[in-house]
Every structure is written in C-alpha cells, then in structure tokens.
C-alpha cells in the first residue's frame, strides 16, 4: 500500500495504490475515482451498534466504505468534502490518536476506529463535541482538515494553547484542560476566543488553520433569505 497526496494545498486528493487483495477503509463518500479492479463495499465498522453509536454520537457516517483491490492491483483517489489539507500518518501500533469527528478520511484496514466520550467539560467547551474518534492500530491513517494542517510537537510537560474548534487530532499521551482565554470572563469572550485548550506534552497536536464554525457564521450573512 502506497499513498501520495496530490495537489497539496486547499483542494488536495490522496492517491492510494493497492496491491491485489489489499483494501482500505474510507469515510463514506470519500472516493473520487478508482481503477476498475477496485470493488467498493459499504461496511458498518465496529458492528451495527458501533456504527450506530458513531452515527448518533459523533455525527460521523454510519457506513464506512471499504475499497478492495479484489481483481488485481489498482489505485483509488480520495478527497474530503471540505476544502483543506490532508495529512498521512503512519500508526505504529502503540500510538493512539484522538480525532475530532470530521477529521477521519481513510485508513488501512488494521486501523481501529472507536467512538469515545469526552469528559463533561471537554465535551461542552472544547468545541469538538462530546464524542470523538479514538484511532489506534497499525498502518496508514489519512486525516483531513478545514484549512491548512499544522503540526505541534510537544516535549514532556511542554504546554501549548489552542483555540477550541481548531483541533484536528492529538496523541493520547497529551492531555488538555479547558480554560478561559483571558483571566476575566467578559474579556474572554470579547477577545473572540472564549475557551481555549491548554495542551501538555509529550505528543503531537494537529490543528487546522480555519475554524469551521466561525466560517459557517461568517458565510451565513451572504446567504439570501428566501421568504
């Protein structure tokens, strides 16, 4: 299995080369084009209940699609819905990543995807919702973001502050607390940041350069109101 990011930038695509018999799973609707040797199957990852919980709890898709090179080698082109960068991680079997619910694009078949409930304060104020995806296992993991993806490397006990809703993925070895952006409640909100996440290393934090919620609010003013 080989993968390559085409057209890096705002409108990228991932090409995955599959050897005969290999397969990957991808977010439903992610496939753009593929060789005729590829079969597309839909699969309820994690069984019916797992899929159900993913659908209702994280808002992720109920079905994942499995792209299988069942009739010989072939390639698959995948793309996310939103404009933004794609990053490919290689999971080593030990590292675990928490991924915000829209961040998953595709993964090798040995990748495990679970819905995980966050703690109350993180769920309420972290901007990622109560449920996130916990991704572990061994193999390729493709994440997508809104805007560009920026990687923050944290040494043990090193701290970094990220505005909520800008998170894409973070290692399970990091931890974070939700706190006000400034010391006062009012200035926290008038500063436009509200709540922020204080991350503590070691580990990696992937952030996106645009906030989907803010973008939605901004674009709403241009949508004509129909009577």
């Amino acid at each position: 299995m080989k993968s390559e990011i085409l057209y890096p930038g705002a409108f990228p695509m991932v090409r995955v080369d599959l050897a005969a018999g290999e397969h990957i799973k991808a977010e439903s609707g992610a496939m753009v084009a593929c060789s005729p040797t590829i079969d597309i199957e839909s699969k309820m990852e994690g069984g019916f209940l797992g899929a159900l919980s993913r659908k209702f709890l994280t808002g992720e898709k109920f079905f994942f699609q499995t792209l299988r090179a069942s009739r010989g080698p072939g390639e698959v082109l995948l793309a996310p819905t939103v404009p933004g960068e794609i990053v490919i991680l290689e999971l080593d079997g030990v590292s675990e990543y928490m991924v915000q619910k829209d961040g998953f694009l595709a993964g090798a078949d040995a990748i495990l995807i679970e819905s995980k409930m966050q703690s109350l304060s993180r769920g309420l104020l972290g901007g990622e919702g109560f449920f996130i995806l916990k991704i572990s296992g061994k193999g390729m993991l493709v994440l997508n973001s809104f805007g560009a993806i920026h990687k923050i490397e944290l040494k043990p006990d090193q701290e970094y502050i990220v505005d909520n809703s800008h998170l894409v993925a973070w290692s399970a070895t990091t931890s974070y607390n939700i706190e006000k952006a400034t010391s006062g409640w009012v200035s926290s909100f008038t500063s436009g940041e509200g709540f922020v996440c204080r991350f503590r290393g070691p580990g990696l934090v992937y952030i996106q350069s645009r906030n989907p919620g803010s973008f939605g609010a901004w674009i709403r003013q241009f949508i004509p109101v129909s009577e």
Binding site: S95, L154, K155, G201, G203, L204
Partner: peptide, 9 residues
C-alpha cells in the same frame, strides 16, 4: 519520549 526522540514518541 526524550530530547533525541521524535515528538510523537
């Protein structure tokens, strides 16, 4: 984790 290791560990 350590200084000479990658940040991901």
């Amino acid at each position: 984790f350590g200084d000479e290791f990658p940040a991901a560990g």
